[in-house]
């Protein structure tokens, strides 16, 4: 199978989307005949290549970060361009990967519904939507903390590489809980503030300005 892996993160090669995509591709490559190419659509030259290759791949994996509860503008504009290109009779199978900053699975439900509908609109089979929350910061966490999630993406890639399908139950497990308990949420708020946002603000000498409201009415 020839898989075109498209990274829709505006952050490009250093993104969390790319990090998770690479794990999926590691599993995909276990099947000897499989070939994959990865392109970052935030890079203009890659974007052109992605447009040229989209309709001629056996499968396309399109990954992106959740941006204001949907796909980034970059991804939507790319898809709008894809849809204007001539479509061959044999269409690629589509797989989507959506990851978010917030941990709960509820945040990615509406966009996943959109993506399934999009696939049918484009006349493609949708093999599934990989969803996972709580991903911002994953690349600064120690390897032992992220082993489980990396393994899940690898497993899903391996299954897809072997069968051309994804297992519903494995996708549900990947997405995790729809909602978190009050206690867990309080922990998320505290942890993200102390371990992440405030540290970064201080490192940038911007902590004193963190509540600035530069466009407030005067």
């Amino acid at each position: 199978m020839r898989l075109l892996a498209l990274n829709g993160s505006p952050r490009g090669p250093k993104s969390n989307t790319r990090f998770l995509t690479d794990e999926f591709l590691r599993g995909f490559a276990v099947t000897p005949a499989n070939q994959a190419e990865t392109l970052d659509i935030a890079r203009p030259s890659d974007r052109e290549k992605a447009l040229a290759a989209f309709w001629h791949s056996d499968a396309v994996l399109l990954g992106f970060p959740l941006y204001t509860d949907a796909m980034p503008g970059l991804v939507k504009e790319f898809l709008e361009q894809v849809a204007t290109l001539p479509r061959p009779d044999r269409r690629p199978t589509l797989v989507f990967l959506v990851q978010s900053g917030f941990p709960e699975a509820t945040h990615t439900v509406p966009v996943a519904r959109y993506l399934e509908r999009l696939a049918s609109r484009l006349g493609c089979v949708c093999a599934g939507v990989l969803r996972r929350g709580g991903i911002e910061g994953i690349q600064s966490q120690p390897a032992w903390m992220t082993r489980g999630i990396r393994e899940r993406f690898r497993q899903l890639g391996e299954t897809f590489g072997r069968t051309g399908r994804l297992d519903e139950q494995a996708l549900r497990q990947l997405a995790g809980r729809e909602r978190y308990s009050r206690f867990a949420l309080r922990l998320v708020c505290w942890w993200s503030r102390v371990m992440y946002w405030d540290r970064e603000l201080k490192a940038n000498h911007a902590y004193d300005k963190r509540l600035d409201a530069p466009y407030a009415h005067t």
Partner: peptide
């Protein structure tokens, strides 16, 4: 609506609201 959702242009502007 473009491909069943608001335009990429509008979405790009929404992203800039964070």
């Amino acid at each position: 609506l473009v491909l069943g959702f608001s335009s990429g242009l509008l979405k790009r502007a929404a992203d800039k609201l964070i």
